[in-house]
Design a protein around this nucleic acid. Structure first.
Lengths: 169, 169
DNA sequence: ATCTATATGTTATATCGTAACATTACAAGA
DNA sequence: TCTTGTAATGTTACGATATAACATATAGAT
């Protein structure tokens, strides 16, 4: 369900475009709070901080990167601390796992019911969450041709963002 | 480039269908030999055996699974032995990496120039290589809307194959 | 205030993957 | 045939990613 009243839905993904990132982050955080409240789930300090860390940029962070940030801020220092927070965020649609990088990124379309496709720049590591509806529909159709029932889909592309293409040329 | 003269191109993927698997494997091996010969590359004993192991079924094997098989047959017993063979096969289109499972599966469409989509049954672990052309086209179009140049795509779906859906019902 | 479910923290270990370097086999030219 | 450069295989050692199992603490309900 796209929100046409909000900037992040109307506009294409800004990951590859210079922009004021503050609103991206604060908007996402506000949505996260609303969604968890609606579901009766708790955005505890570790979880909130983990989400904020992911929201610092359009990139993916490994669990151990997140962990060292958390540890330096007084949270637990062992892997399950990070994995649990990240898994919670992913389970409730606030973050995504980037399989290609064994890492995690904040969801930029919180609250929209979506399959995400990720464009991963191999040069600058920026990650854009692209509209995946058509791609997902095509995948659904290939799956039903074999009688396969999809429960979750992973769609990721590795390549070069516009700026890094120019830099490489 | 589909081969309409060969069974594996004309027919839909057989992973979820009971079938005589012998031809799948021997056909794939024959194609692998032809392709490597054409490129002047060597299908050495480890590489060949690794491919044969992957070709034993429509499923994915972890690098360490492959490694223990290789080791038990007198090949080296250290991880790089398996990873090198697997990476070689992937690089030349004879095998695919399944990101979702951190594992590898034989390519069932060797020699066809394709982006693969994988249907992964979470109950029986069978893996089907589905036609991904439409899905990939949609992804390309989402990428170019952001000026992103895709170099490689990962399209995977987790769910239930027909037989396991019936078993679950 | 107590109870219960949830969340956080720990130790320990499993699993996946690669860097660096020594040794062996191979193919191509002298 | 013999050298010789290159590719392939093997090793040790380690780094990176992830989870099992269990102890402690906290929030919210009664």
């Amino acid at each position: 369900m796209p929100h046409d009243h909000c900037p992040s839905c109307a506009a294409p993904d800004l990951a590859f475009v210079a922009h004021d990132h503050g609103p991206c982050a604060s908007d996402a955080l506000a949505r996260a709070i609303a969604i968890l409240a609606a579901k009766g789930l708790r955005l505890t300090p570790v979880r909130r901080r983990t989400l904020e860390i992911l929201l610092e940029g359009h990139r993916a962070l490994g669990a151990y990167d997140v962990l060292s940030r958390l540890a330096s801020e007084g949270f637990g220092a062992q892997p399950p601390v990070a994995y649990r927070a990240l898994d919670f965020l992913e389970e409730h649609g606030l973050a995504h796992r980037i399989r290609r990088l064994n890492s995690f990124t904040a969801c930029m379309h919180i609250g929209e019911n979506h399959t995400a496709a990720f464009l991963i720049c191999r040069a600058c590591n920026a990650i854009s969450e692209a509209p995946a509806t058509p791609s997902r529909a095509a995948l659904d159709s290939a799956a039903s041709a074999q009688g396969f029932a999809i429960e979750s889909a992973t769609i990721e592309a590795l390549g070069l963002c516009p700026a890094c293409q120019r830099a490489a040329a």
